[in-house]
Simulated assay, not measured.
Amino acid sequence: MRGLQGGEWRPGEAIPSELELAARFRVSQGTVRKAIDELAAENLLVRRQGKGTFVATHNEEKIQYRFLRLQPEDGMPPLRMQRQFLDCRRLRAPSDVARALDLRAGDTVVQIRRTLSQSGVAVVLDDIWLPGSLFKGLTAERLSEYRGPLYSLFESEFGVRMIRAEEKIRAVVADEATAVVLSVQAGAPLLSVERLSMTYGDKPVELRRGLYNTHGHHYRNELS
């Protein structure tokens, strides 16, 4: 874990073999294998048959959308949703955002507003807050140009990898402004999902507040 957190092995790179790691840390190969298994279960490492073990990246197909739990009723995968960025600006963090991201009052944040649509209909309205010090140079133009998953951009260009997230979910009704964006009636039921994403060391690096129109979708989670 220290090697991952310290950037010794970067996303997409192979880590040393189990034998090499065992010798380096003076532990048994079984101990190394158990640690690798645990990190793979947490989507921090990826085993590739015949090739070795690699640091996971948000470009990995099986994990690039693992935080998006909205599933269409017709079975179409969520990765086919189209995104549109409505705004991207730098400003002083509102007090509640600063608390969530463990920032000081007055620190700069980047606020992104976007929609996710399916078949031309907006399904999600997201407000995303990022620490300004970690995302210098992030602009609306760069967001619009990038074609991959948003977390892949954060990882590849800003060195910020989302490791895990916590969510709070509640039912709300659409106000007039949100109703226009999501093409619903004012007062229509929506799902409010607030996600706090963390990087290594449980450092909060993203606050995301999404409003979901679940008329043709459902929120799906797996519990274990």
Rank of each mutant, 00 (worst) to 15 (best):
R24I: 11
F25Q: 12
R26F: 11
V27M: 11
R33N: 09
K34M: 15
K34V: 13
I36E: 00
L44D: 05
R47N: 06
R48E: 10
R48M: 11
G50S: 03
V55T: 01
A56G: 04
A56R: 04
H58M: 10
N59R: 14
K62M: 08
I63Y: 10
Y65T: 06
F67T: 07
L68V: 10
L70P: 01
Q71M: 12
Q71T: 11
P77T: 07
P77S: 07
P77M: 09
P78A: 05
P78I: 00
M81G: 04
Q84Y: 10
L86F: 01
D87M: 12
D87G: 02
L91C: 15
R92A: 14
A93D: 08
P94V: 06
P94C: 05
R99W: 06
R104E: 14
A105Y: 12
G106H: 03
T108P: 04
Q111P: 01
I112K: 05
R114M: 11
S117H: 00
Q118V: 05
S119M: 12
G120L: 07
V123N: 01
V123E: 02
V123T: 10
L125C: 05
D127K: 02
S133F: 09
K136Y: 09
E141A: 11
R142T: 08
Y146E: 10
R147E: 12
G148P: 01
P149L: 10
P149I: 03
S152A: 14
L153G: 06
S156C: 09
